[in-house]
Design a protein around this nucleic acid. Structure first.
Length: 356
DNA sequence: TCAGAGTCAATACC
DNA sequence: GGTATTGACTCTGA
């Protein structure tokens, strides 16, 4: 990410195609054309290289002082307004420094950006690039799919990509993987022990469960995301409803946690977690150290029931039903993982050693 | 390269 | 048929 870039909320992201005609007409062009561009308007307009016959280098040498901050800000605005990624925009632009501190070489990107801002077709060009990239991606997927599925075996269900209406695409439909209850349970147990498994663990999980590694990766991504969302919703509800709900006398995790115990990442390691090696016969190991390394992951039922009871946050409790109880276990594992990382970070004096 | 956020769409369930 | 669940994906930032 470039220094001038900021996070933006995807929910608010609006594709130009979704804008009104008026909005489109104002957004599908560089911001410099916007008469209200006012205060952040970058400095003196530059001659366009193609039109002026000057090279970038010549322009750099000739150009008057540019407001580097305003230019980078303006570029970012235009990209954001038009739903264009910075990766597309370009190369590795340096963080804005005052013009007089920049070398000729250092000034060059800003001259380029200035030109880009001035170019009325800059956004369209980027949009075209975006389309081409998407096309290329489709092509790659298409060839990889036809490699793995010479015939239409397994290609049922949805159109792989939305909007792909060509006959070829209609044929290339990807089967949805539906995980069985045992697989899900195993993955959940693995998650309870280690919400962030290493590639090695993922591979082992995949082979043990007879799944693709990408499926396992996706599952962990989705599961973390959904657990987090549930937690968030729950917290919102708790904050808006019962004050102090669920944490009477302070957080149980903070009261009961002790990072030294078991040296587990999520605090779920307990007796029976490592020792038991049955069921799926998991013996997943990775000794790359500390929290980021892989603890052995046990997928057996025994450890699953045991892990919850040993979490820093009591995962079992007066849940209304088994499903609630499961949810509590999941959330406890997630929270304990976060807590453990924070504690670990806090115990290190040198901030450079902090791991998050 | 990885993880988070958001989204799509197949599937399951009522 | 409507809704919920969930695997897969894109885009983005770090």
């Amino acid at each position: 990410m470039q220094p001038w870039a900021q996070r933006r909320t995807r929910a608010k992201r609006t594709h130009p195609a979704q804008l009104s005609t008026k909005q489109r007409s104002s957004s599908l062009k560089p911001a410099s054309e916007d008469p209200s561009g006012g205060e952040s308007q970058p400095g003196t307009p530059l001659p366009v290289p193609g039109h002026s016959g000057l090279s970038i280098q010549e322009m750099v040498a000739m150009s008057v002082e540019l407001d580097t901050y305003a230019i980078t800000k303006k570029v970012k605005e235009v990209l954001t307004d038009n739903n264009l990624g910075q990766r597309l925009f370009g190369e590795d632009y340096p963080g804005p420094k005052p013009w007089h501190k920049l070398s000729l070489k250092g000034r060059e990107p800003f001259v380029r950006m200035q030109l880009w801002i001035q170019d009325p077709h800059s956004v369209e060009k980027l949009m075209d690039m975006k389309r081409l990239e998407k096309k290329a991606y489709m092509k790659r997927r298409l060839s990889s799919l036809s490699d793995s599925h010479p015939v239409d075996v397994g290609l049922v269900g949805q159109d792989y990509m939305q909007g792909s209406q060509s006959p070829v695409h209609q044929h290339l439909k990807k089967a949805r993987v539906v995980l069985g209850p045992e697989e899900k349970e195993a993955l959940k147990r693995a998650y309870q022990q280690k919400p962030y498994p290493s590639p090695k663990t993922i591979e082992e999980l995949a082979s043990q469960l007879n799944l693709k590694t990408s499926t396992v990766i996706n599952w962990f991504h989705n599961y973390r995301s959904r657990i987090r969302r549930e937690l968030f919703i729950e917290e919102i509800q708790a904050a808006g409803g019962l004050v102090g709900h669920g944490s009477e006398g302070g957080s149980p995790s903070l009261r009961g946690s002790k990072s030294g115990e078991g040296d587990s990442c999520d605090g779920t390691e307990s007796e029976g977690t490592v020792e038991t090696r049955q069921g799926l016969g998991m013996g997943l190991e990775d000794h790359r150290g500390a929290c980021k390394d892989d603890m052995e992951v046990d997928l057996t039922e025994a450890s699953s029931s045991g892990s919850a009871s040993s979490t820093n946050i009591p995962a079992s409790g007066p849940a209304r039903n088994p499903r609630d109880n499961n949810l509590r276990k999941k959330k406890a594992a997630n929270l304990n993982n976060i807590i453990h990382r924070l504690e670990k970070a806090a115990s290190k004096e040198d901030p450079s050693e902090w791991e998050f």
